[in-house]
Simulated assay, not measured.
Amino acid sequence: MNLAKKYIKEHPIECFFFSEFHHKQGPKITYQYPLGCITKNSSLLEAVINYVIPKPDLQDKLITVNAVGKKVIGCPVCIDDPKYPRNQYMFNFGLVLDNVHKSSPCIPLIKKLSSYMTELELECYFVSNEKTKEEIPGLLKKIFTELNNEGTCSTSVIDTTTLYLKVFPPSTQPKPVHDHDVPILTVPKDYFKLDKWDLTTQQILPFIDGFKHVQKIAVLADVDAELTRICIQNLAFYEHVQLISIYQYSNVYITTAKLNQFRQNMEMQNECLAYVSRSGHQPPTLHDVMTLYCGLGPRVTLRKLCILFHEQITRVNEQKLIQYGLIHNLIRRINMYPVKVKSERSHNTQSDLHQYTDGLHSADEICCKLGCSHSELLAKLEHDKNIVICWK
């Protein structure tokens, strides 16, 4: 029995529901499965109704409410559009647990379900249209049944897409995915049978090449950024992708203790040599690879490494070399973190930058947040005497 199935057997989901703000009736639980979990006059409904369809400051946020011995989890959505009555439509897909159970195993699936249904609503008004809305009760029943039986769910929402959901036991929570992370496939592309994956996965897979970061993939695939992060998080959990850092010649790397294991593992060596070789060039040797890895250091950028060892670079693809090293933890990136050391008394012309100069945001993250290149960020930092650089 897999971990998800074992966990859900001991911590079952009690109910899935769909709520919405009706322009005449106000907030209501429109559909639920099983029926009768949240009744019209129940104390549970009275306790949570203001949170299943909340005020604007709580919309588009994950909400967990503990009340009447239950735990209600949802991610309410509000879409502004003049086509709707009152020019907006509010809805929420949520679930109910016993309040002694942890909410964290179900949070990823609620986020994904909410993002997915939001996309369908934006594309074809699936949730608000009275005809397609009639499919929601069957959808809730299927999700409820499959998750409680297997810990996972695979269901067709519309003919062209399939929704995949999974319960994540506490010890196996997927790691967060950031806009500046770079996903790289750990399995061959032909492993994926696209018709078996949801629409988002089908859209983003062609752009996962080990060089494009999450934010860029979302733009190129024309997919919502949050939905892209959730999808890649799911792929990473199943070990279909691994997350590495953005490749730049200004990057700095150092070796790890695992390089010694690599030196003694002939199978890894042969795999690496095949991976990093340049097509149409003389094959690299183990000496070439080890020379380049050992040439990395705290003060050595990748650009400098290529200049110092230009002969080895003619045989070794430096991009593939770095990828292989990161995937197998032979090397790690030393990131640049801008830190503001004193307050400015004059008018702050770079407030957009200064909000990320607390030493907690890497240069890659800041570039994604501000929509600038690494060189543009460096130019800003060089002109600001109140900012120093911390490498870690």
Rank of each mutant, 00 (worst) to 15 (best):
1 M>Y: 09
2 N>Y: 12
4 A>K: 13
7 Y>E: 08
7 Y>N: 07
10 E>D: 12
12 P>Y: 11
14 E>P: 05
14 E>A: 09
16 F>R: 07
17 F>N: 03
25 Q>T: 06
30 T>C: 06
37 C>I: 07
39 T>P: 02
40 K>V: 06
46 E>R: 07
50 N>P: 00
51 Y>E: 14
52 V>C: 12
55 K>Y: 11
56 P>A: 09
58 L>W: 10
61 K>Q: 15
65 V>S: 05
65 V>G: 04
66 N>E: 13
67 A>F: 12
73 I>K: 13
77 V>F: 05
78 C>K: 14
78 C>Q: 14
83 K>V: 02
90 M>Y: 07
90 M>I: 15
92 N>D: 15
94 G>Y: 14
98 D>L: 08
98 D>M: 06
99 N>A: 10
104 S>C: 08
110 I>F: 04
118 T>P: 00
126 F>K: 05
133 K>D: 00
146 E>V: 01
148 N>L: 03
150 E>C: 04
153 C>A: 13
153 C>G: 04
157 V>E: 08
164 Y>W: 09
165 L>Q: 11
165 L>N: 08
167 V>I: 15
169 P>T: 03
174 P>E: 03
175 K>C: 01
175 K>L: 04
180 H>C: 12
181 D>C: 04
188 P>W: 06
192 F>I: 05
194 L>S: 06
196 K>R: 11
197 W>L: 15
198 D>K: 00
201 T>V: 12
206 P>H: 08
210 G>W: 06
212 K>H: 11
213 H>R: 13
215 Q>Y: 06
218 A>V: 05
219 V>Y: 00
221 A>F: 02
222 D>G: 01
223 V>M: 00
224 D>K: 08
224 D>P: 10
226 E>I: 14
229 R>P: 14
232 I>D: 08
233 Q>M: 13
239 E>T: 12
240 H>M: 13
243 L>D: 02
249 Y>C: 00
251 N>T: 05
255 T>Q: 09
257 A>F: 08
257 A>C: 01
259 L>Y: 09
260 N>C: 03
263 R>K: 13
266 M>V: 14
267 E>V: 10
272 C>H: 06
272 C>G: 06
273 L>E: 01
274 A>L: 14
278 R>D: 02
282 Q>R: 15
287 H>I: 07
293 Y>H: 08
298 P>I: 12
299 R>K: 12
299 R>E: 15
308 L>P: 01
309 F>M: 10
311 E>R: 09
312 Q>W: 01
315 R>G: 00
326 L>C: 13
327 I>A: 03
328 H>W: 04
328 H>T: 11
329 N>G: 09
331 I>E: 05
332 R>Y: 15
332 R>A: 02
334 I>H: 03
336 M>P: 02
337 Y>G: 06
338 P>I: 08
344 E>L: 11
345 R>C: 10
347 H>P: 01
347 H>Y: 14
348 N>H: 04
348 N>M: 07
351 S>V: 06
352 D>C: 02
352 D>H: 09
354 H>Q: 01
355 Q>H: 00
356 Y>F: 15
356 Y>T: 02
359 G>E: 09
362 S>Y: 08
365 E>L: 03
367 C>I: 05
371 G>V: 04
372 C>R: 07
372 C>V: 15
378 L>C: 13
381 L>N: 13
383 H>N: 15
386 N>E: 11
387 I>Y: 07
